[in-house]
């Protein structure tokens, strides 16, 4: 059985670190893992995705339309942009956090209303406020690790030694904070 996790967000939100920790944990747990990340240009602020697939044997790193078991969106509107990649029986974790794109900033468009309602009416949707939780932990940057926590819990991957994975991959002074953030994330779903 191959499982597919789709992490989406906006450049600079830390999806890359989250997917790195996730895939490292999956590998150490003995799964075959493949991951695809398309990032072209270096300017901040574009739509980004990390596609993670794991199981006994994984062929393609790419998640196809209707292929993801879970869609975790670090930004609200991005969840809707990527929803067609979710299996009809899949679930969504969405961060209730808005980042305005240029056409919104310039006033050409409004930030779309009713996204959470649209998502919730179509699939089981868990809404989290990772930004608020991160601020409570004292560092807005750990939003990504909180969201990683929601993935781990949602996919039933709690048994993996995440603390060790964090210790091996994160700067020493941030380990404790990240471990806490992960626990917060796991408690949200």
């Amino acid at each position: 059985m191959v499982k597919s996790i789709l992490l989406v967000g906006v450049g600079g939100q830390g999806t890359i670190l989250a997917s790195k920790l996730l895939t490292t944990g999956l590998m150490e747990a003995g799964y075959d893992v493949k991951m695809s990340e398309i990032h072209g240009m270096s300017q901040r602020g574009g739509s980004v995705s990390s596609q993670v697939r794991y199981g006994d044997k994984v062929e393609s790193s790419v998640i196809e339309v209707g292929g993801a078991d879970i869609l975790v969106s670090f930004e609200k509107m991005e969840a809707l942009r990527w929803l067609k990649y979710l299996k009809p029986a899949g679930k969504v974790v969405v961060n209730d956090y808005e980042i305005n794109s240029m056409p919104i900033l310039s006033g050409k468009f409004d930030y779309p209303a009713g996204i959470l309602e649209e998502l919730s009416s179509k699939v089981p949707t868990k809404i989290v406020c990772a930004a608020k939780q991160a601020a409570e932990l004292g560092n807005p940057k750990v939003m990504n690790i909180i969201l990683l926590g929601t993935i781990i819990k949602s996919m039933g991957l709690e048994a993996i030694h995440w603390e060790k994975i964090i210790r091996d991959n994160v700067k020493a002074q941030f380990v404790e904070l990240n471990v806490k953030a992960l626990a917060v994330g796991m408690s949200l779903v």
Binding site: G45, E64, V65, L80, R81, K84, S101, F109, G114, K122
Partner: peptide, 28 residues
Amino acid sequence: PDVIRKAIYGKENPSIDYDADKVVPRPP
């Protein structure tokens, strides 16, 4: 895989039908 599937079998895997018009572009 979805592109190949569509080319060969004429359809993609089932996916969720939703209102994608709401989504505003995010150009670089």
